[in-house]
Amino acid sequence: MQVGEITKDWLRSVLNWPITDADEITVAPLSLSNGAMGGVYRVRCADRAFVFKCPPSADSPWYRVCSEMGLLDREIEIYRFFGVGERRKIAPECYWSRLMSEGSSALALQDLCQAGRVMDRFVRGLNRNEAVAALRTLATLHGVLPTIDGDARASPLPWLGPASSDGLAAAITEGLSVVPSLVETMFPDNFPREHFSRIRQIDIPRVVARSHCGSKLLSLCHGDCWSSNVLFTSRLGCDGMGAMLVDWQFAMWGNPLSDVALLLLSSLSPAGRRAWVDDLLTCYHLQLTKDVAGYSLDDCYHDFSKAMPFAALVATATLDAYTCGLTKPELRHIAMRMEAIIDEIPELFVVS
């Protein structure tokens, strides 16, 4: 189903909206990547709105990866899994969904109506309260299916792929393939060219496997946790702030600290990350152990360290999405953050 197929009759019969023939439907694109990973739209009619998601078009560079991995179907399965109870607080409400096997993948989601441009928060970097709210939500997520000393290659859910799957490595490879040219265009003065020309020599499946296999804790992971995939709410949390996670296409079974590492690497300023990392990990661990027994703070630090190479790979591979539509001054902020990632994890750029 595509957004153009949404009619007033569909809104009445499927979503039970009490709209009249005089009410107009308006559609606005929301995708930060211009629909490369799939269409994302805000659909309004009368005084109601929802977010509609559909697969990418066949001419998208991500179409093959999205289709082969079944990314939108995976996101739909996540929302169905979160359908009831406390799990709903992790993500927006799903009003309607359809899997590929049921016709054509599509989702209709609660519109949380975030004010302003979501990329503004990413550019400046999360503040401490925002980071705490996001990590508490991640800890709640990671407490849903926790397994101590389990097998990272054996997901407990048939639709949830392990982090070590070939598809994830292929997606990272696809993202990394455009980074050298992207860096030359957007950051010509910030990075030595050899850093990124050597990306093609990294043994990506090995880095991914090492970051997930052998972690003390395994759980359901979001897989793409950067600040633009975190929506902040007034729900009770840190200083009245809560958070929900969106864009679950890369949900996976693996080391949950990969979500934490990616959020801190991609979405905090280097100075903020250095200053707050210990407090943030302690806060995350405190929330996590409300649901997970037998997992010490030392275990948490161990899994966080294991996850860092994977998080740096994902942060680098997602650079195109991170920078889409940013101004030159904003790009300078992102360049500083990317330099900090490279400086902190130099082994990523050593040929395996």
Rank of each mutant, 00 (worst) to 15 (best):
V132S: 10
C300L: 00
K89M: 12
D151N: 13
F187R: 00
E339S: 14
A271C: 04
K216D: 03
H285V: 01
L72K: 04
G272K: 02
W17C: 14
I6Y: 08
E102A: 15
E347I: 15
P180W: 03
L288G: 11
C213I: 14
L141C: 04
A321M: 15
G125T: 07
P55I: 00
D343T: 15
W10F: 08
E174F: 12
K53P: 10
I148H: 06
Y301I: 11
T137E: 04
K328A: 15
A91L: 13
L32G: 06
G240C: 13
S267N: 11
R98W: 05
L176R: 01
L217W: 07
T233F: 09
S101F: 03
L348R: 07
G294I: 04
V277T: 07
D239A: 09
R136A: 05
D9I: 11
R274F: 08
H285S: 03
R193V: 14
V230S: 04
L32A: 09
G85E: 06
C283M: 05
S305L: 13
G294V: 06
T327S: 00
R153W: 04
L160E: 02
A307R: 12
A261G: 02
M241T: 13
K306E: 05
A134K: 09
I76Y: 01
E130G: 04
A22T: 13
M1Q: 06
D259E: 07
A58H: 13
L280D: 03
T316A: 12
A115P: 08
D189F: 00
T7W: 10
F232T: 02
P205D: 12
I76V: 03
D23Y: 08
S234M: 04
L15D: 15
L281D: 05
I345H: 07
P329R: 08
L176S: 05
W253F: 09
W17Y: 14
G167P: 07
R153I: 11
M119W: 07
A171I: 04
D239R: 09
I90A: 03
L107V: 01
M37Q: 10
D59Y: 06
A315S: 11
F50V: 09
A251P: 05
R88Q: 14
D9F: 08
S104G: 09
P180G: 02
G240T: 14
C45E: 03
L99M: 07
L263Q: 01
T233R: 08
L160F: 01
V118G: 01
T282K: 13
N129W: 05
A335Y: 05
M37P: 04
C300V: 00
F349E: 09
G240L: 08
G272I: 02
Y284H: 05
L280Y: 01
G39F: 01
R235Q: 15
M336F: 12
I19N: 00
V144A: 06
L109H: 00
W276V: 06
P158R: 05
Y301A: 09
S219Y: 07
G4D: 15
G70W: 06
G125Y: 03
E330I: 12
E93A: 12
L71N: 04
L319Q: 04
L326G: 00
S258M: 10
S60W: 11
V292H: 06
E130Q: 15
L157R: 10
D166T: 13
